[in-house]
Simulated assay, not measured.
Amino acid sequence: MGGVLDSVNQRTQLVGQNRLELLMFRLNSGQLYGINVFKVKEVLPCPALTLLPHSSKVVRGIAHVRGRTISILDLSVATGGRPLQDISKGFIIITEYNNSVQGFLVGAVERIVNLNWEAISSPPKGSGRAHYLTAVTEVDKKLVEILDVERILAEVSPPSENLSEDLYNKGQGADHRLNTVLIVDDSSVARAQIRRCCESMGLDTVVLNDGRQAYEHLKTLLAEGHNPADRYILLISDIEMPEMDGYTLTASIKNDPDLAGLYVMLHTSLSGVFNQAMVDKVGADDFLAKFHPDELARRVLAQQERQEVAA
């Protein structure tokens, strides 16, 4: 237990410092890719795989790992490349996204680097693989591409985005003082999912791509004489974002007396024992794992009702 607590403490020291740890790996070529260490459970040499008939071409098979059967996805195929050839020499990165565990087949695993989110940028426009990138950075003068894993998983196994009938009707029938939600996420898939959920309840949305954009937007509202807490029901923010992550965005909002009244919900595919300690540290009002449309709708409606009572 002491080791777990030490690890939690070590990781939470990064919170509010706008930093992340990135596991770098390669696929078929020399190009470097990255994934946030918080999403990685372990890295293993590729075990024997059992083929699944009629499965997606991205799924190379299933493997038994630590008493659990998990799907193994070929990241090269998932991003439009050719399949990894000699998988016996490859590795699987076991990850947890959206409360599900899967393995990503890669050609080689490099090392872990500690970076500042300010050193990570949105992918350049016109990039051939930009469809599958959320960000890029540079390590030792080499370009590292950070994949949009949420898009990959959504294409392999699309999540349900439909609200239950009672929540749909409740949202459509609501008549509240505030009717707009601020959404911040670097994944185009996640932005679209949250936006469609909110708009299906009859709400308006403002959608931004990263934490820095969101913070500058809020400061601009203040400069124009508007209180963001009087404009938005709540801010729904991802955690992993270039320029400024969701933890730093939340801490910046809650440490600013003029912004602290804005309700902030962190909405992320990150899973694990560290989340609650981090959420508590930065002062977020709520935390929700992606993507559960009914639960998201319930919490948005509950916050609307709280605001009505307080008004």
Rank of each mutant, 00 (worst) to 15 (best):
Y97C: 07
I94E: 09
I112A: 05
N114S: 13
Q102Y: 08
I92N: 03
G81A: 09
A63S: 11
Y97Q: 07
D148V: 06
V109C: 05
E118Q: 15
A63R: 04
A78K: 10
E145Q: 05
H64E: 13
G103T: 12
H64V: 11
N114W: 13
A119C: 10
G81T: 06
R129M: 00
G103F: 12
N99R: 14
L147V: 12
A135V: 11
I72K: 08
K89S: 10
S127W: 11
F104S: 06
F91N: 08
S122C: 11
T137G: 00
V65W: 07
A130I: 11
R68T: 03
R68V: 02
W117S: 04
S100P: 04
I112D: 11
R82P: 00
L147Q: 07
T137L: 03
V77W: 11
I120P: 12
S76W: 12
G67V: 12
A78L: 08
L84I: 15
E110Y: 07
S121Y: 13
R68I: 01
E96K: 09
V101N: 00
F91Y: 15
A63L: 05
G90Y: 09
V109Q: 01
E138A: 01
L147E: 04
G61P: 14
I87L: 12
K141R: 14
H131I: 01
G61L: 09
K142C: 02
I112N: 03
K142Q: 15
L143K: 15
T137C: 08
A119D: 14
E138G: 00
L133R: 04
I70F: 13
K142H: 12
T134K: 07
S76C: 10
E110C: 05
H64N: 13
G90T: 08
P123V: 07
A119P: 03
G90P: 07
S88D: 08
L73S: 05
L147P: 01
L147N: 03
S71P: 06
G81I: 10
L84Q: 04
D86C: 06
V109I: 14
N98E: 11
